[in-house]
């Protein structure tokens, strides 16, 4: 099983509902966030194009944060989700510096925190909170090892990209372009 998320950049309007849903669902402390929305403008005026992306931890297959963690607090669970065990994290912040996506932060209680794909919901067969609330239904979550899953079919049909592929991290967040 390999959980992944696909985000349709043609449908995302950048409303930030995903950000708010995550903060409420996961009790993210004020002033911190596990996901965020980026507006990327490319080209030269007047030939400009705009892409809106909801970003978060990429749950990389080749996760540098997991490799560099000295205590195994950062680890990959079944389904390929990268999680942090709060009771094993010493707060050395090596994982934060190793992440090319700047997706991690120090929780006010001292341990390192990040997106978990709402693993507590996924274990119950539900979608992550951000996917559930998206008003434009631009986010898809599922198992890419299952060829019949919606996400697998989308990745076969549509063009997609990942962020900073040259970093070699093999991200599992796909942006449909």
């Amino acid at each position: 099983m390999r959980y992944a998320m696909a985000i349709d950049t043609k449908k995302c309007v950048g409303c930030s509902d995903c950000v708010v849903a995550c903060q409420v669902e996961n009790n993210v402390p004020i002033g911190h966030c596990r996901d965020w929305v980026v507006e990327a403008t490319s080209g030269t005026y007047p030939d400009l194009s705009l892409e809106i992306r909801s970003e978060r931890c990429n749950h990389c297959t080749n996760a540098p944060c997991v490799r560099c963690c000295p205590t195994e607090a950062s680890h990959i669970v079944d389904g390929g989700i990268v999680v942090v065990d709060h009771d094993e994290c010493i707060g050395c912040k090596a994982c934060i510096t190793s992440c090319p996506y700047d997706a991690r932060f120090v929780h006010p209680e001292g341990y390192v925190d990040k997106c978990t794909f709402c693993i507590h919901r996924v274990e119950k067969g539900e979608n992550p909170a951000c996917v559930s609330v998206c008003p434009t239904k631009c986010m898809y979550f599922g198992d890419t090892d299952d060829p019949n899953s919606e996400i697998s079919q989308l990745l076969r049909k549509r063009k997609w990209k990942t962020l900073i592929p040259e970093a070699g991290t093999e991200p599992n967040i796909y942006y449909l372009t």
């Binding site: 002033g31 966030c33 990327a40 030269t44 932060f105 120090v106």
Partner: peptide, 16 residues
């Protein structure tokens, strides 16, 4: 040229 702006607000202390 690519200009990227975080529009949802992201000010994780020590990161942003």
């Amino acid at each position: 040229m690519i200009e990227q702006i975080i529009t949802s607000g992201k000010h994780n202390i020590g990161i942003d």
